[in-house]
Structures are given as C-alpha cells and as structure tokens.
Amino acid sequence: NRRVIAMPSVRKYAREKGVDIRLVQGTGKNGRVLKEDIDAFLAGGAKP
C-alpha cells in the first residue's frame, strides 16, 4: 500500500469523479498526483 502524494483539492476531485487515487500514476514533482493525472486516468489510463 503506497503513500499517495496529492493536494487535498486533488484528493477531493478524485473522490467526486469516483477515482481511487491509489491507482493513478502521479506525474508531478516527486510523483505527486495532479488534477491532470486524474483526467488522464478517466480518459483511458495513466500517463506513461
């Protein structure tokens, strides 16, 4: 169970979209999950 780095607003956005943030690959600094990562996940998967 890895620790997810994300701003509270991004965590809320993921919850609102029904996304398990632990499944999203973060592309920000130090692997931080960004809102754009949530959108990319919803569009068909995590960014490479």
Rank of each mutant, 00 (worst) to 15 (best):
N1F: 03
N1H: 01
N1I: 06
N1T: 03
N1L: 04
R2E: 08
R2N: 09
R2I: 15
R2F: 04
R2P: 02
R2A: 00
R2D: 12
R2Y: 15
R3S: 05
R3F: 15
R3G: 07
R3I: 08
R3M: 09
R3Q: 09
V4T: 07
V4C: 03
V4N: 09
V4K: 12
V4M: 11
V4Q: 08
V4W: 05
V4I: 14
V4P: 09
V4G: 05
V4R: 05
V4Y: 05
I5S: 13
I5R: 03
I5K: 05
I5W: 11
I5P: 07
A6E: 15
A6P: 11
A6I: 15
A6T: 13
M7V: 02
M7G: 13
M7P: 00
M7T: 02
M7W: 06
M7A: 00
M7D: 15
M7H: 11
P8I: 10
P8N: 11
P8R: 13
P8W: 06
P8M: 11
S9D: 09
S9R: 08
S9T: 12
S9N: 06
S9C: 10
S9I: 14
S9F: 13
S9E: 15
S9L: 13
S9P: 14
S9G: 14
S9A: 14
V10M: 04
V10R: 01
V10C: 09
V10E: 13
R11P: 05
R11S: 11
R11H: 05
R11M: 14
R11I: 15
R11A: 14
K12H: 14
K12R: 11
K12A: 08
K12G: 13
K12C: 06
K12W: 06
Y13D: 06
Y13F: 15
Y13N: 02
Y13R: 02
Y13K: 04
A14S: 06
A14G: 07
R15E: 13
R15N: 13
R15C: 10
R15W: 08
R15I: 10
R15L: 14
R15H: 15
E16Y: 03
E16C: 00
E16K: 02
E16G: 10
E16Q: 05
K17H: 06
K17W: 09
K17A: 09
K17R: 12
K17G: 08
K17Q: 09
K17V: 13
G18L: 09
G18K: 14
G18D: 06
G18E: 15
G18V: 04
G18C: 12
V19Q: 03
V19H: 00
V19N: 01
V19D: 00
V19T: 12
D20P: 11
D20I: 13
D20R: 04
D20Q: 11
D20C: 08
D20S: 06
D20A: 05
I21E: 09
I21Y: 08
I21F: 10
I21L: 13
I21W: 11
I21D: 07
I21H: 10
I21T: 13
I21P: 11
R22G: 14
R22I: 15
R22Q: 14
R22T: 15
R22M: 14
R22W: 13
R22K: 15
L23N: 14
L23Y: 14
L23H: 10
L23V: 12
L23W: 03
L23C: 10
L23Q: 09
L23F: 03
L23E: 14
V24I: 12
V24G: 00
V24M: 02
V24Q: 02
V24N: 00
V24K: 00
V24S: 03
Q25G: 10
Q25Y: 08
Q25F: 07
Q25L: 11
Q25C: 10
Q25H: 03
Q25D: 15
G26D: 01
G26S: 09
G26A: 10
G26C: 05
G26R: 03
T27R: 07
T27K: 05
T27G: 08
T27D: 03
T27Y: 00
T27A: 09
G28V: 05
G28W: 01
G28T: 03
G28A: 09
K29T: 11
K29C: 05
K29S: 10
K29G: 03
K29W: 02
K29D: 09
N30Y: 10
N30R: 07
N30Q: 12
G31L: 04
G31Q: 13
G31C: 09
G31T: 08
R32H: 08
R32W: 15
R32V: 06
R32P: 05
R32K: 14
R32E: 13
R32L: 10
V33M: 07
V33P: 02
V33Q: 03
V33Y: 06
V33N: 01
V33C: 04
L34R: 07
L34H: 08
K35R: 08
K35Y: 13
K35C: 07
K35S: 08
K35Q: 11
K35L: 07
K35P: 14
E36L: 06
E36D: 15
E36M: 05
E36N: 13
E36H: 01
E36C: 06
E36K: 07
E36P: 08
D37E: 00
D37V: 00
D37G: 00
D37Y: 00
D37L: 00
I38C: 04
I38H: 00
I38A: 01
I38G: 01
I38Q: 01
I38W: 00
I38E: 01
I38D: 00
D39I: 02
D39W: 03
D39R: 02
D39A: 08
D39E: 10
D39V: 03
A40E: 06
A40V: 07
A40D: 13
A40S: 13
A40F: 12
A40C: 10
A40P: 04
A40W: 11
A40N: 12
F41L: 07
F41A: 12
F41E: 10
F41V: 11
F41Y: 04
F41M: 13
L42Q: 07
L42V: 11
L42P: 03
L42S: 05
L42F: 12
L42N: 04
A43N: 12
A43T: 11
A43V: 13
A43M: 02
A43G: 14
A43I: 11
A43D: 11
A43H: 12
A43Q: 14
G44S: 12
G44C: 02
G44Y: 03
G44L: 13
G44H: 13
G44V: 11
G45Y: 05
G45M: 12
G45L: 10
G45K: 12
G45Q: 12
G45W: 07
G45C: 12
G45E: 10
G45F: 03
G45T: 12
A46Y: 06
A46K: 04
A46F: 11
A46P: 13
K47G: 10
K47Y: 09
K47M: 05
K47P: 06
P48K: 02
P48M: 04
